[in-house]
């Protein structure tokens, strides 16, 4: 899932200061799972903002709605009839949702309510970890399903580096060394010989280095 974290309420208060009619829009997908921008978080934020502005004596309408997704036009269209009633939209979706909302409702200021952070998984209740960097050319088959692009601080393809100590990365004693994980797993799979194979230079043009990316599927395109 795309993992995001809530923005501090002070920052949100600051960004919606000029609004008189605010619509807070949640997303039922990734940000619901990582508890940053789902229906519940929309309710909590709306309640907190209402209290803040009431306390300030400022008249402000704050309403809530949560969409199935904000990265598909069909779902964004569901609030077409509501949008004209508001002067600002605060989207608790990931950066994709915020931008797609702004592309659809061109004359409406759309503000972000979360900090979109990475593609990751739930490690335990309340803890999420990065697993994929969307580099555009997956090499997990060669690295025993541990990604050095997302999980090695240096994105090394032939690791580990000299900063790996007792299985941890030199940047943080709590961060696992991705290459230690790769070696451990290759060993467990009886494929340690694969480690001797040198990895070729990666084509980074398929990553962000190639500029904004687009996927076109002519076979399904209408």
């Amino acid at each position: 899932m795309i993992v995001a974290s809530k923005k501090p309420i002070e920052e949100i208060i600051q960004s919606v200061q000029g609004s008189k009619r605010l619509l807070i829009v949640g997303c039922n997908e990734c940000v619901t799972v990582c508890e940053a921008g789902g229906k519940k978080e929309v309710g909590i934020l709306a309640s907190a903002l209402r209290m803040y502005f009431m306390n300030q004596g400022k008249e402000m309408t704050i309403d809530e709605v949560t969409l199935e997704r904000q990265c598909d036009k069909e779902y964004l269209e569901e609030i077409k009839h509501m949008v004209p009633n508001y002067d600002t939209i605060l989207s608790l979706a990931c950066g994709v949702g915020v931008q797609f909302m702004a592309e659809m409702y061109k004359d409406k200021p759309v503000l972000p309510g979360v900090n979109t952070t990475f593609m990751g998984a739930t490690l335990e209740r309340g803890v999420w970890g990065e697993r994929c960097a969307g580099c555009g050319q997956c090499i997990l088959a060669k690295t025993a399903a541990v990604c050095p692009v997302a999980r090695c601080a240096k994105r090394l393809f032939n690791g580990p580096c000299g900063g790996s100590t007792k299985g941890k990365c030199e940047i943080n004693p709590n961060t696992d060394c991705a290459w230690q994980l790769i070696i451990d797993r290759l060993k467990a799979l009886g494929r340690l010989d694969d480690y001797d194979e040198l990895m070729p230079i990666k084509d980074w043009s398929k990553d962000r280095a190639g500029g904004p990316r687009i996927v076109v599927r002519e076979d399904i395109r209408l």
Binding site: I9, E10, I44, A48, M51, Y52
Partner: peptide, 8 residues
Amino acid sequence: EILEKVGV
């Protein structure tokens, strides 16, 4: 935390 920040 929230109530503190919203002034309640």
